[in-house]
C-alpha cells in the first residue's frame, strides 16, 4: 500500500489523547445519570440507564480490543498506552450497569438477583463477563502485573471470553430486532479473528496441558 501518512503518535500527544478518552467516557455517563435523576430520560429512566451503560461498556470494550490492531496496522506503537484506560472505562460502565440493575430495577431484591443469575441465560453470561472484567480491573496495576508474572497474561487473555459473553448477553436480551446485536457480534468476531493465531495457540496449549495432567 502506498498510502502516505506522515502522522506519528509522539509521547507528547499521549496526555491529550488520554484526556479526550477521559472526557469522552465521563461526560456522557455523568450527563445521562443527571438526566435520569432529574427524570428527563424518557418514560422509564431505569431501562434507559441500563441500555446506555450496557451498550457503553460493550463499545468501550470493543474499542480497547481495537487498539492493538490499529497500533500494528498504522505502526503507532505508542497507542498501546491507552488500551488499559479504555478497558478500565469499559468496566466502569459495566459497574454502573450492574449497580443500576440491582439498585433501580431489582430494587435490592437479592433473592430475585440470585434467581435471575441462575435462571436467565442472558443474565448468567452477562454476570460471568462482569466478573471477568472485574478481575481484570483489580489486576490492572503495574504492581499486580509484576507480582502475577506469567499468570497475569493468562488471566488477561480471558478478555476474549468476556467480549464473546457480552455479545451473547446483548443478543439474548432483546425481544426482537436482532440486527443491532448481530452487528456487535460481527465486530466482536472480527476482533477475535484478528487474534486467531494467538487464540489457536491458547486452545492447543490447554489441550496439551490437559493431556499432561491425565498422564
Amino acid at each position: 500500500m502506498s498510502v502516505a501518512y506522515s502522522f506519528k503518535l509522539k509521547p507528547a500527544h499521549l496526555p491529550w489523547l488520554k484526556l479526550s478518552i477521559h472526557l469522552g467516557a465521563l461526560i456522557p455517563l455523568v450527563l445521562t445519570y443527571y438526566q435520569a435523576f432529574s427524570d428527563q430520560l424518557g418514560g422509564d429512566p431505569v431501562t434507559a440507564l441500563l441500555h446506555f451503560t450496557g451498550l457503553g461498556a460493550f463499545k468501550l470494550l470493543l474499542l480497547s480490543l481495537t487498539i492493538t490492531p490499529l497500533a500494528r496496522t498504522f505502526k503507532q506503537g505508542l497507542l498501546i498506552n491507552v488500551r488499559r484506560l479504555l478497558g478500565l472505562y469499559s468496566f466502569a460502565y459495566a459497574f454502573a450497569h450492574l449497580v443500576s440493575y440491582v439498585l433501580f430495577d431489582l430494587q435490592l431484591d437479592w433473592t430475585l438477583l440470585l434467581s435471575e443469575i441462575i435462571k436467565r441465560p442472558y443474565i448468567t453470561v452477562g454476570f460471568a463477563a462482569w466478573l471477568i472484567l472485574f478481575s481484570l480491573t483489580l489486576t490492572s496495576t503495574k504492581k499486580a502485573q509484576r507480582s502475577l508474572g506469567r499468570r497475569w497474561q493468562t488471566l488477561h487473555n480471558f478478555v476474549y471470553l468476556a467480549v464473546s459473553l457480552v455479545a451473547l448477553h446483548f443478543l439474548w436480551s432483546v425481544k426482537s430486532g436482532l440486527a443491532e446485536p448481530l452487528i456487535y457480534m460481527v465486530m466482536s468476531a472480527a476482533l477475535l479473528l484478528y487474534r486467531r493465531d494467538k487464540l489457536q495457540r491458547l486452545v492447543t496449549k490447554r489441550i496439551k496441558n490437559g493431556q499432561k495432567l491425565k498422564k
Binding site: 435520569a36 435523576f37 427524570d39 418514560g43 422509564d44 429512566p45 431505569v46 440507564l49 439498585l103 433501580f104 430495577d105 431489582l106 430494587q107 431484591d109 430475585l112 434467581s115 435471575e116 435462571k119 436467565r120 441465560p121 442472558y122 439474548w172 436480551s173
Partner: peptide, 24 residues
C-alpha cells in the same frame, strides 16, 4: 408463568416518583 428469558412474578410500576422509588 415466566417468560423464558425473564421473571413475570413482579413488575416495575412507572410512576412520577424518581429513580429511588420502591416501585417494584
Amino acid at each position: 408463568v415466566d417468560h423464558p428469558r425473564w421473571s413475570q412474578a413482579s413488575e416495575r410500576r412507572i410512576s412520577s416518583a424518581g429513580l429511588f422509588s420502591r416501585n417494584r
